[in-house]
Write a protein that binds this DNA or RNA. Structure first.
Lengths: 336, 336
DNA sequence: TTTCCGGGTTCCACGGAAACG
DNA sequence: CCGTTTCCGTGGAACCCGGAA
């Protein structure tokens, strides 16, 4: 294949010629508008728009060693799980003149590939979800020194992290069920991901039940947390352990909604026959009837903070801020 | 801000020195492995891995004018709307050695900004949803000549397109309601987006009703199609027009699910009191009870085809294929 | 404003080894 | 057997576009 670059490639140079200024002025017009006189700037911008010129990020990145693009790896878009998180990130970068690009990765291997791509792109920073990553990816990140922020992580970050205590949230939610008079409480865990985003929950659940003098053997693990279908399956499995189950704690609102659907089919009343607790406070939690009692994790805030950490790092301020706790709160609705 | 490039930046040069070869050999090792002797190649790869070297895509892109990154703009991740579409894209590019990056854009202005970013990144191709784009963005795309594929578009593509006939689908679904004995059919339209992905539906709906000798005045427009909350609102509005409404056609399964939730609260039986039709065949359509009768748009296939179109274009084959019809089918469940 | 440089690729030249006359 | 052609892996120089000084 021959060099296919046409001779009409629009470059800074050609814009400069057309506008009757030096290339440097064009450069400044885009990077530091305030350095260029209003009149000149407008002329350059007009010409650039006419010619369809967009600064070549590759060249700029190469020349300056800087980038205004941040990469985020998202585990899933199957349901609303990361909607607010991404919105928060998007809004935060927009106000700072940065750009956010996403890659989906529903396994550690895919995450590693995504990280590789982002590193290849020489992005300004990388946002990950959770604290479990492939060893190769960890080494790569360390060696390149690119700012990394983990979300939904509450302690001992790889580099920087923003999150909340899943243990505290689990304890609070479990206690709420106990206080509601429930004694035969089931737990639905997610084992497709070994990150603390999920793994902290089970031990805390057990501990809380035991401190209340209750049995903590009603436990099932499912392999997906973002599908409605997991709800009925989990409920079925728990009923095998204890047909008189009177409450259930789900890994996400999606699973909880799946459980509610199944309760409907069984003509079980919620919360009387079975109390249901979710996690995430997705839109469905407030729209379904009965509304789902759930953990609201301030995901939007988390996304914003994640971007701030990265941007502050690259701009050199607040170098020592590495861990942000965005907290959570319980949203009490009718399901529990 | 200082140039933060540390003196230990791992470059092709440093790998070359460490491996005792010329930079060219390192370059070839990554881009054209077959040109380099097995032994040499392995040595280079080993050293590269040790040093944590990842080829600088920015530099490569600049030098070659080529890129193996494709950008896709997604309108929403609020619910599962584009889950299968993105999965299809992801799977397709993975087998071809390309990389997919995403940007979210829930307005035309944001889409234009996303396009600008992708053009700045000099991606190999851009995937858009729908056929309505800002004029500036259109001109930019034309001038840069980057391959563009529109999805959910069935005719007269901007460049290339993959989709199905929303008119045919609307007609089929409406007819299904008519054949089911329904006479007071309501339509929920989405007016937040002027692309044919949604706008074709209303006229077709009207026409189909009129051909059956039915009234077609039960129509409401909502401003979001990806939220459950729109369902109850739309139902309320339609009931103002006709309290005896006996069927409803929703823009997405999400809205349909919202309607089902509301029916539950009103103790309306579905489909006897009200038949409900959705669109999209998202997971919830099969998991909720009653299951939602809906249009299955082969979104996964659409994503795959979209990527194929772009990759074929850049590799020079099938230059003339510009429009792919991935079809649809009706999934009949209990809600209508 | 000008010059030079960033990291990698294209294109081509080089040189050693195998195959041929 | 030796000189020459061919082949193939490797190296050198110019250049891509934009930013810093």
């Amino acid at each position: 294949m021959t060099k296919h670059r046409s001779d009409e490639t629009v470059t800074m140079q050609s814009v400069a010629v057309a506008a009757g200024v030096s290339p440097m002025t064009v450069s400044n017009t885009f990077r530091y508008p305030e350095r260029v006189q209003e009149e000149t700037r407008l002329r350059v911008l007009t010409i650039a728009a006419e010619l369809g010129y967009v600064p070549n990020h590759a060249a700029g990145n190469l020349a300056s060693g800087q980038s205004r693009v941040i990469g985020a790896v998202i585990p899933s878009i199957k349901n609303s799980s990361f909607y607010n998180y991404v919105r928060g990130m998007q809004d935060a970068v927009a106000t700072q003149g940065y750009q956010l690009i996403l890659k989906l990765a529903d396994s550690l291997a895919q995450e590693a590939a995504a990280i590789r791509t982002f590193v290849g792109l020489r992005v300004a920073g990388i946002a990950l979800v959770g604290d479990e990553h492939e060893q190769d990816a960890r080494m790569l990140l360390r060696k390149t020194g690119v700012p990394v922020v983990e979300s939904w992580v509450h302690e001992t970050p790889f580099d920087m992290a923003v999150g909340y205590s899943t243990a505290d949230a689990t304890r609070a939610l479990t206690q709420l069920l106990i206080d509601g008079g429930h004694r035969r409480i089931g737990f639905v865990g997610y084992d497709g991901d070994v990150s603390s985003r999920f793994t902290e929950r089970l031990p805390t659940f057990r501990q809380t039940l035991e401190q209340a003098g209750l049995e903590s053997n009603r436990i099932v693990l499912i392999d997906q947390a973002d599908g409605f279908g997991a709800g009925p399956k989990a409920l079925q499995a728990l009923c095998t352990i204890d047909p008189d189950l009177d409450a259930i704690l789900c890994p996400t609102d999606i699973v909880a909604a799946g459980v509610l659907f199944e309760c409907g089919r069984r003509s079980w009343t919620v919360p009387d026959r079975l109390a249901v607790a979710g996690w995430g406070d997705y839109e469905i939690a407030s729209e379904i009837t009965p509304g789902i009692t759930t953990i609201h994790p301030h995901a939007y805030d988390m996304g914003q903070q994640a971007m701030s950490l990265i941007i502050d790092r690259t701009t050199g301020k607040d170098q020592d801020k590495t861990l942000v706790d965005t907290g959570f709160h319980i949203v009490r609705r009718c399901s529990a």
